[in-house]
Design a protein around this nucleic acid. Structure first.
Lengths: 349, 349
DNA sequence: GTTTAGCACTCTACTATTGCGAGTGCTAAC
DNA sequence: GTTAGCACTCGCAATAGTAGAGTGCTAAAC
């Protein structure tokens, strides 16, 4: 079980995976012996294959087909055998162009997602977690709607706007709301959303005893606004593009599975959870096949990376594609993209 | 060509289409003779089929399969042969529950789309055209962003909010923006967007000679805000749900076509154009197969209806599914839904 | 003239059957 | 430890045969 894998076996595994990724065909011993560059016979390769199979690195679809990598085999491949293929200057420039705009974070995310999808010819995704710490409040504003509903408008981070409808106990006049907003602005503008949510409002409330009625009410409103895990804003912070490209891969031609996958994309919920779990481990992460624990990603792999400013993780981006993907190309693409998004964000701060 | 179709042939066509919709199998003469209820032999039916085939109403996949309806056959079926199956009270109540909420139009549309998708087990869609006349402006507000960019917030129709970023020639202070907003609010609040866009701003500008500099600038800003056919707000007014259900239909199991269809869903552009063209003809409309002129809808039909208040068309809703769909059920669903949405909107006005 | 029965014909879908090629695992020799 | 040789297995493609469904046509019946 815990046996070591010989150097030659490792090399053979590497060549096998590369060949399989390229051609999508099970790799036989003869071909592998020739392509490996080693001066060994097919029979020797067969022995090595038998060992690798015992270790669960490869398997044969049937008796007389060659071997294909298992998920474990892919894992070993990406962990220690892979030689990545750096991006060309041209490719990096294209990315730079995409990042140039001065749109909102939403637009930036959409553009990055497109880039990832385009470069890898798979599906690209970008997540901007709602809990991002670097978001600071720039302005808050209330507007009366009909009945006892109030529209709250948050401007966050120079660029992003978020609307929330809250319900209150009575009707308020425009002037009252103006006062409430003034009060909240004076207390909250410039603060980070995370702090507002978790600390500041509580502090305010605790010192409320000596406060006017109005301020008290203002705090109640703010609590409603910031507490909402509003499904809407939740949905907006995950951008996926190029999903349809996944329909082109034979390994995903099973309609049942494909449908499950697309439903997961629509729900977003599961995928978001998975990405959330990436927020901790910084840098590049790879989920191969069902490693993620989500059945719908059975035949898929995800390559993700966090992007960050000043060492603080702001979000996750990456791609989804078939397990049999060109990792040596996809990995640097995701990696460089994450780094450049980080840089772009740091600059526009 | 312009030959009349005999009564019996019509009846046979009706039974044939119904049978094919139910079973998805080509219908042979023997079966058709039995199911038609007529007291005729299979041979007679065969003669009638030969006539219908000549008229382009049916065709056979191959020599020894039965007949299936052509698009023209479906067209005749839905136009003059169909007997619709009214909704049960229970089904109507479900719809009523969905409409009960007091959310924004976006939320209402999403919920209606879900309902349509759920009831028909196909894809549901709801369009709220940007040009809807009944939208009246409730409030406008400016907020300075970095550089020379300004965030404009429009509150429309009690419920909906729209954000637009505009660029201006210099930096403005919060106070200046407040003044501009005040001016615009006094002039524009309560007006319909359509009027604002097409008339009022022009009138204001024409009488501007005697105006302050500030008002002049305010009008310029407003023009930017209202003129934008902003791709973003454009995308938001079309809601589609249950697309993945379409993957379950055999007639759409061709991956190429399916992919094309889903790409069209993502682009939205083509579909929106098509729906736009429904805005004119009021009431229920049906596109069968490629009648729409859009290749991606080849094997699909769309059943749509406009919804309206006080005789004014506000938008389009409907479903998309395979050409072989249960029209007698789908049509009343779409029809009733449109009527009830109309009623709900009239009520919440 | 319309309707019907009869019949030869066509085409698909299903089921063996076969042969080929690829690749394996094992054994024995190097 | 490595290699060559060899029997064996399996999938795949081609072929052929069969059964079933349904047609078109013709000639007779109404």
């Amino acid at each position: 079980m815990a046996e070591e894998i010989g150097e030659r076996a490792q090399h053979l595994l590497k060549v096998l995976v590369e060949s399989y990724i390229r051609n999508g065909q099970p790799v036989g011993s003869r071909l592998l012996a020739r392509d490996s560059g080693l001066d060994v016979s097919a029979a020797t390769v067969r022995n090595a294959m038998a060992d690798l199979e015992e270790l669960g690195m490869v398997s044969s679809p049937h008796t007389s087909a060659g071997r294909i990598p298992t998920n474990k085999g892919y894992r070993m491949f990406v962990d220690s055998l892979l030689t990545v293929k750096p991006l060309t200057d041209r490719e990096i420039m294209t990315l730079n162009d995409q990042l140039g705009g001065d749109g909102s974070n939403q637009e930036l995310a959409a553009s990055v997602s497109d880039y990832l999808a385009g470069m890898t010819e798979m599906a690209g995704m970008v997540m901007i977690p709602r809990t991002a710490k670097r978001s600071s409040l720039r302005h808050i504003e209330f507007m009366p709607l009909s009945d006892q509903r109030i529209l709250a408008i948050l401007v966050i981070n120079e660029k992003d706007v978020q609307n929330t409808v809250i319900k209150v106990d009575r009707q308020y006049t425009t002037v009252e709301l103006q006062q409430a907003a003034n009060f909240l602005n004076s207390e909250l503008v410039g603060r980070e959303l995370f702090d507002v949510r978790h600390r500041i409002l509580k502090e305010l409330r605790e010192t409320k005893d000596g406060m006017e009625q109005m301020m008290h009410q203002a705090i109640s409103m703010a609590e409603q606004v910031f507490e909402q895990p509003a499904s809407k804003s939740n949905a907006d912070d995950f951008i996926l593009s190029g999903q349809t490209r996944l329909m082109g891969f034979e390994e995903l031609s099973n309609m049942e599975k494909l449908r499950g996958l697309f439903e997961a994309f629509n729900e977003k919920q599961e995928i978001l959870q998975l990405l959330d779990s990436c927020l901790g481990g910084d840098g590049l992460q790879i989920f191969i096949g069902d490693e993620s624990g989500y059945g719908v990603l059975d035949e898929c792999s995800m390559v993700t990376s966090s992007y960050q400013v000043d060492g603080e993780v702001l979000g996750i981006l990456g791609v989804i594609g078939p397990t049999r993907m060109a990792y040596e190309r996809v990995i640097p693409i995701v990696d460089v993209t994450a780094k450049m998004v980080s840089a772009a964000l740091a600059q526009s701060k």
